[in-house]
Amino acid sequence: MKKVTEKQAIYDIAIIGSGVTGLAAAMYAGRMKLKTILIGFPPGGVIATTDWIENYPGFISLSGKELADKITAHAKEYGIEPILDNVTDVSQQDGVFVVQTAFRQYRAKTILFSTGTHYRKLEVPGSDTYEGKGVQFCGLCDGPMFQNKTLAVVGGGDSAAKEALILTQWAQRIYIMVRGDRLKAEPINLERVNQSEKITLLLNTNVTRIEGGDRVEKVLLDKPFQGNKELAVQGVFIAIGSVPLSDLAKKLGVKTNPKGEIVINRQTGTNIKGVFAAGDVTDTEFKQAITGVAEGVLAVYQAYKYIGGEAVSSCVDEEYLDCPMASENLRKQPE
């Protein structure tokens, strides 16, 4: 760790994580005239690997990368220049937070963790062996390599449904292996899965092993399919949820829940003063791009107030009596 020097600038807020949550937070921080640093990798976060988003208000359909690019461009309008790098360490020294990347060190009065999540790996024999050799995590990135192939998608949620639907562009047959008795996808995606002639749902089915030679050749199942516990596939796409990227926050002493998610209050505050968290890394139940963006914006406002910024009124007309910002004289006037 490099020694902190007095010459280093102190940022009002360091936003760690450059997914849509961090990008939106940075955009707002720019508007609030906070001296802001946004550090994260990869740009756009996990959502950038999503083929289509249809539930972000204002956009009927766009790709995850498009959404991230739009928010990035919006943030840049307010002078934000994202730094594409991983943060390797965060500490607190002499009352300020010190953020270390591979190349530089930054100091800030407040921190916002918008570090998101990473793909959860399937813990069965063969999963690690064949990672990148048929065990894949990104349908958009790797799907074209599986033209006319038979694939397994492992997962029981909306991500698995969407991954399978993406892969129908290239694959000949796709089996979704669902551990439970139903695919818990958004109704619209469930309908699309059911209508696809290429997709077969295998319910109450677990993959117990992945086997092959140089590449994946088959999966072993815990329940026979068409009388056989072996299923020949050339690729296995994993969509079994995600792991919160909260290690840096934990190192700082931020409280997490048993899932490793950062525990936040309604104002996005954590158990450490000056440390905020937003988006998929938090213990919020309903994790969506729009909820992460909203949390990120709220976190920036709380950080703004924490460092001494005056409350911002949402009132259209401060003479309106119900407005919290209305002058005391107005409030005292009889109706």
């Binding site: 990869p42 740009p43 950038a48 995850g64 594409l84």
Partner: peptide
Amino acid sequence: VIPTCPVCPVLGAM
């Protein structure tokens, strides 16, 4: 790379 890969330009530009 392939044209549908959204993360490929990040590595390419780097």
